[in-house]
């Protein structure tokens, strides 16, 4: 038991109910340079501060969602559905 993450469906739950995937990243185009792919697969911003991340409510509704969280103190995070991600970030996220 630690901090509580807000599932957009179920509400606040202990973070142990969730699975963290990774920070939100832009999937390169299939024909992108290999260096773009290694960047996508291996490299991370790893922000000390706010970042948007993928989480999965494993022990609850089993939904994927995004949370903008401060990695320094876990407080005041904002969680939302992927469909509510601003369209420009989604385009950058690519792959659609």
């Amino acid at each position: 038991m630690s901090f509580q993450l807000n599932c957009p469906n179920c509400g606040k739950r202990a973070v142990s109910e969730f699975t963290f995937k990774s920070e939100l990243k832009i999937r390169p185009a299939a024909d992108a340079d290999f260096s773009e792919w290694t960047d996508y697969v291996y490299f991370r911003e790893n922000n000390m501060g706010r970042q948007v991340e993928w989480w999965y409510h494993r022990s609850g509704c089993q939904s994927w969602f995004l949370a903008e969280r401060d990695t320094l103190n876990n407080t005041d995070h904002r969680s939302f559905w992927y469909e509510d991600l601003e369209q420009n970030s989604k385009d950058k996220n690519g792959g659609n």
Binding site: S2, F20, N46, T71, N73, N74
Partner: peptide
């Protein structure tokens, strides 16, 4: 390690 990134 804890399962999610955290600097705190």
């Amino acid at each position: 390690i804890d399962t999610y990134p955290h600097y705190g």
